[in-house]
Amino acid sequence: MRLQFILGEVFRGLRRNATMVVSVVLVTFVSLTFVGAAALLQMQIDKLQGDWYDLVEVSVFLCPEGSTASTCAGGEATEEQISTVERTISTELDDVVSTVYFESKEDAFEAFSAQYPDGYQGTQLTEEDMQASFRLQLADPEQYQVVDEVLSGRDGVEVVEDQRAIFEPLFLALNRSSLVAVGLAVVMLVAAALLIITTIRLSAVSRQRETGIMRLVGASTLFVQLPFMLEGALAALLGAVLAVIGLWAAVQYLVIDWLAESVDWVEHVTTADVLTIAPLLLGLAVAVAAVSSAVTLHRYTRV
């Protein structure tokens, strides 16, 4: 009985304020889409980092002929120098390095020829142009600093390079864009909250006669306010549901059906990830609606 009555009031209110309700739905839809997009982007970044950091290596380039580095004063790295470096890796860096692979000039040339069979930018290079190196796979990619300290500056070692550095600009770009999405989401959420406040206020003013009588005959505060709260919450929830559907569609059609087809060498976010963040979006919608109604109703339907 009471539930039926309250729901009746809610739907009457939603119908009466249809245009405002639609705008609340749309604004929450857009803002939560931004929130969700930022969350998905973060998830994508995590996946990429997990994938790529396992693949990347630390390269210890050995002195080639004619290097200007101070450690390469003796010309090309000698057999002795190479074995000293190898020993150092197996003793001092035993717990940091998981696998070691020595890439000789021949190996490097082979890999190069496979990648650029017609020469690099029109220049045909020879095996002598290649550089020998140690490729280290680290147990923990974050330990790069230790490797660098131990091996840099040794005779025969030209430079120690962390391949992760290659990815840094990409991750920086992705992180920045997810920050932009979060920033936009915050602005849109504020707009959504303000719109909900206005909608509830309009609804409360247009039903002042009813609420006045309700207060007069002794309806409880909750009973008076509940229809308004539910109105705001329903509109916001609807926006959140649309956002989830929108994100799901974006992931399905843009990422899975298109991006994953052309860029198949990385793991992508999936629709399951969208479902993971769905509760977050719905909860956020309810929270924004709850805060807005608390602010408004305190003023407009005081007993």
Binding site: M1, R2, I213, V217, S220, F223, V224
Partner: peptide, 8 residues
């Protein structure tokens, strides 16, 4: 009836 409905 409204007066009775709203007080449950």
């Amino acid at each position: 009836a409204f007066a009775l409905q709203v007080i449950g």
